[in-house]
């Protein structure tokens, strides 16, 4: 179901000649061109420091390019005002490697955040959050404050928070890194299901097992550049 398999042609993310650098440091990525189409599924790979997090940050609109053009949902983020950026971010789900949960709040309240910022009514929030927490097997821990949850539980809360909005694009940084195999399988099934329903998915991972198991294209970062490998089997053949 990768980029080659989808019939939809709308570009969700479109990067042209993008350069990322921080202050006076050398460029992290240079002259990057990338187009993610609606309903596509990609793994994002590369060594530590290759720029995976920077690329993802740009996709979830936390970072603007040093040069070049980035369009998300057809909006050039270089010219978008703050409210427009906020509205665009509501269509994006993000799972951080370090979870970035609001530690002082309960699992329930963390998952409810994306719905509350949209102004959804509390009854609807309650229904949706409880349903999703039950699905990720956290229904018994929904009232626990996040600082008391285990790493695996936190990861599931982070994933639930990212998908509760049924986002148009889901960006996940090592989403299965802290959970056991059964939960990892279940989470991957969730991502695949979301993708089947039309969500564009990008998963940054170091896990070769995950890449081997799922037949999706791969964006590989190396030497400040980017290469897109259409599918794993073809990648393996090429390599």
């Amino acid at each position: 179901m990768g980029i080659s398999k989808t019939n939809q042609s709308d570009a969700i993310v479109d990067m042209t000649n993008v350069c990322i650098k921080y202050g006076t440091d050398p460029e992290v990525l240079s002259d990057v061109k990338l187009e993610l189409k609606k309903g596509s599924f990609h793994f994002l790979t590369g060594k530590s420091g290759a720029g995976k997090t920077s690329l993802l940050s740009m996709m979830y609109l936390a970072l603007k390019p040093f040069s070049g053009t980035v369009s998300v949902f057809g909006t050039n983020i270089g010219f978008a005002d703050r409210n427009t950026m906020a509205m665009l971010r509501r269509r994006i789900g993000v799972v951080f490697q370090d979870f970035r949960l609001l530690e002082h709040l309960s699992a329930y309240d963390n998952v409810a955040v994306p719905l509350r910022v949209r102004g959804m009514n509390e009854n609807e929030i309650k229904k949706r959050v409880k349903e999703l927490l039950r699905w990720v097997e956290l229904d018994k821990s929904m009232d626990k404050i996040c600082s008391t949850l285990s790493g695996g539980e936190k990861q599931r809360v982070a994933i639930a928070r990212a998908v509760i909005n049924r986002p148009d694009i889901l960006l996940a940084d090592e989403p299965t890194g802290n959970v056991d195999d059964d939960i990892a399988q279940k989470l991957m099934k969730l991502f695949v299901e979301l993708n089947r329903l039309g969500t564009t998915v990008v998963i940054a991972t170091h896990s070769q097992d995950l890449i081997n198991k799922y037949n999706y294209p791969r964006i590989h970062l190396e030497n400040k550049g980017l290469r897109v490998f259409p599918a794993l089997r073809r990648v393996n053949n090429e390599q």
């Binding site: 409210n83 906020a86 994006i92 910022v117």
Partner: peptide, 10 residues
Amino acid sequence: EILHVMGATD
């Protein structure tokens, strides 16, 4: 920062 990523406006 997290709230902004979740789509919160100023």
